[in-house]
Simulated scan of single mutants.
Amino acid sequence: MGSHRRPAPSGLDRGARSAALCVLSVAAAFGSLPAAGAAPEDDVRARVDRLYEEAERATEAYNKADDRADGLSEQVGLAQDRLARQQDRVNALRDALGSLAGAQYRSGGIDPSLALLFSTDPDGYLDKAAALDRIGVRQAGELRRLNSALRVLGQQREEAGRKLAELEESRRDVARNKRLVERKLAVARRLLNTLSADEREAFGRASRSARGALPEFGGSAAPSGRAAAALAAARSALGRPYVWGATGPSGFDCSGLMQWSYAQAGVALPRTSQEQRHAGRQVPLAEARPGDLVTYRSDASHVGMYVGGGQVIHAPHPGAAVRYDPVGMMPVSSVTRP
C-alpha cells in the first residue's frame, strides 16, 4: 500500500541547553522539582516515561487526524468534480431551453385564431401549430429537467461545503496534535539531558525490561504466508530511527512500522494503533504467533509485532531505533492477527 503522507517532523529539540535552563524548564513543565530524599535520576526517568506515553498518545491522535485529512481531501476533490459536471449539465439545459423558446417565438407568437384567419395556407398553418405544441411539450420537459438539475446542484454545493469545513477542522487537529507532541518531546529531551551518560544507558535498559509475569507461548511459526512476509519486512527495518508520524521506509513511529510491514505483504492496515487493534481476529496473549500485532496500554496507544520467544519488534520512542523488546515491556491491551 503506497503512502503519500507528508514527511513527518522529528519534533526533537536539538539546541544546546544549559543545566540551569533545563532545571527551570522541567520545573515549569511539572510544577515542582523532585521531593526531598527521592533519587533525582529515578524521578527523571519516571517523568520521561510518562512524557513518552503522553507524546505517543498525541502522535496517534496526530496520525488519525492526518489520515482523516487525507481522506477528506480526496472526498472534497470528488465532490468538486461532481459539482463541476452538474454545473455543466445545468448550463446545457439552460441553453437548450433558450433555443426552444427562440424557435417558438420565431415560428409565430400571435393569437392562434387570428393567425388562422389571415393565413393563405390554413392546412400549412395547422401543421405548424401541431409542431409548436410538440415544441411546447418538449420545452416543459426541459424546464422540469432544469429544475431537477438545479436542486441536485444545490445539494452538491452543500455537500462540498460540509466536506471543506470538515477538512479544515481536521487540519486544525493535525496542527494542534503536532504542537502537543513537539512540546512533550522537547521537555523529555531536556529531562534526559540532566542525566549522566550512565544514567541514560540505565534508562534504555529499563525500558526493555518485562513488567509482570508472562504466559507460556504457543508455536513459533507464523500463522500465514502474509504474516511471515510482514515479519520479514519488520525485521528489515531493524535499526531505523523512530520518527513520529512516519510510515517508512527511512523512519517509523510504532503504528507506521506495522502499517508499512504489512503493506510489503500486500495487506492494508489502518493508520493508528487503536484502529490496528481491530484489524483482524483477536487472540489470547498465550496464543500469540509471529506476525501478530500486540497493542499496549488500555488505550492501545502503542503497538508492536510479535516475533516469537516472548519478544516483539517495534519502534519504541524518539531517540531509539526499531528493535526487539520483551512482549511484557508494558501492559498488553490485546493481540490481533491480521
Rank of each mutant, 00 (worst) to 15 (best):
R17C: 07
L21N: 14
A35S: 13
A39C: 12
A46W: 11
R47P: 12
R50S: 13
Y52S: 12
L72F: 02
G77K: 15
D88P: 00
V90C: 00
A96F: 06
Y105A: 10
A115N: 08
L117C: 06
Q139A: 15
Q139Y: 13
A140K: 13
E142S: 05
L143Q: 10
L146D: 14
G154T: 12
R157K: 14
E158I: 03
A160R: 10
K163C: 02
L164K: 13
L167T: 14
E169C: 01
E169K: 08
V174C: 07
V181G: 02
R183G: 15
R190A: 13
E199F: 00
G204K: 02
S207K: 08
A213E: 12
S224N: 04
A227D: 01
A228H: 04
L231K: 08
A234L: 15
A237G: 07
G239S: 11
R240G: 01
G245Q: 08
A246L: 04
P249T: 06
S250I: 08
F252P: 08
L257F: 14
L257S: 11
W260Y: 06
A263D: 10
T272E: 15
L285R: 08
P290A: 10
R297Q: 09
V307W: 04
G308W: 05
G308H: 02
G310K: 00
I313P: 05
I313V: 09
P318W: 02
V332F: 01
